[in-house]
Amino acid sequence: MSVKQIAVFIENKKGRLAEVTRYIADHNVNLRALSIADNQDFGILRIICEDPVAANGILREGGYITTVTDVLAAAISDKPGSLAQILEVLSEAGVMIEYTYAFLSAKGGAYMIFRVDDNQSAAAALAGAGIKTVDQEELF
């Protein structure tokens, strides 16, 4: 149960983010979720979209450096403590989290995206605690 995320390398310079998002838009790719991480030289734009294989191809054709990663999308309920509960489950299972960001499905429902060191044990631990992880099809 995982979702494909595309990461794009962008230089930390004025206009680069606008440039890549314009490129994505011009090729009719609809972004569902994104997050950006950066240091002083570069940023990494991470995106979730409906057809990651096609979108990745389009980005590479445009000369962008990309990588596709399997990440977990965990359903989260709209009440205090939901995120804390997920993080506790993962922590108890000994799963390391590289990064996380939030995401709203078009069908309704909120999700947290997790990039972890071990997708399988993370998914199993969450399932054991009654927390649902979804795959690509269920999101769109």
């Binding site: 990461a7 570069f42 990309t66 990064y99």
Partner: peptide, 18 residues
Amino acid sequence: ELTPDQFTDTVKELTEKE
């Protein structure tokens, strides 16, 4: 210049490469 096979999705790893 970064080459495609050196790219990863985490800032930590790329910063370590630098």
